[in-house]
Amino acid sequence: MISIMNTFGIWLAAFFTLCIFSFLYKDNPFYKFAEQVFVGLSAAYWLVYIIYSIMVPNLFAKLADDFSGNIILLIPAALGLMMLMRIHPKTQWVSRYPIAIMVGTTAGISMLRYMKSDILQQLTATMINPFAAATTAEVIGNLLMIIGTICGVYFFYFSKKQEGVSKAVSKVGIWFLMVSFGATFGYTVMARISLLIGRLDFLLGDWLHLIK
């Protein structure tokens, strides 16, 4: 029986794969169907995942095991229910309280976390002696790293109109950013192509058995 259901699963996967690929010809009912099924499955998957990985272990299981010991958890539960009041226009204002607590907590955590990891640590990593490297290529690389970081940060300085020397510095920053975007683009292309190869491998191998 497992074998039959396994075969059915492969055919189901092949059907959905072809439905999505049919968009390459033009928008059509098969694609629209598969797209909406994906939205539905995706939403349900994340809901089930959140229930089992967050809500049950952090709230429901703790309250069920020791209600009086974890009574404080009724506060986030109440705040969560207040969040759901956003559905109705008349009670929408109630959801501001849980949102404010979430936003306040996030702001506090983000401020410290980004100050450490994205500002101080990155600045520290840039403050190096560029000439203390083993090869000429590394020395050039270190110099490029320092110049690129300074010019790149300067490009994002929008408080003053950039003209003259500052415009030149900003321009160098753009060049470095373009190199980085090019590298990112290259990686994205390769990732998408490998996904495409994976799907073609599935269709020609697992489904049609044309390749081993």
């Binding site: 500002i119 970081t149 940060v153 975007f181």
Partner: peptide, 8 residues
């Protein structure tokens, strides 16, 4: 360098 500039 560019990623660092973006992060900072």
């Amino acid at each position: 360098a560019a990623q660092r500039a973006i992060l900072i």
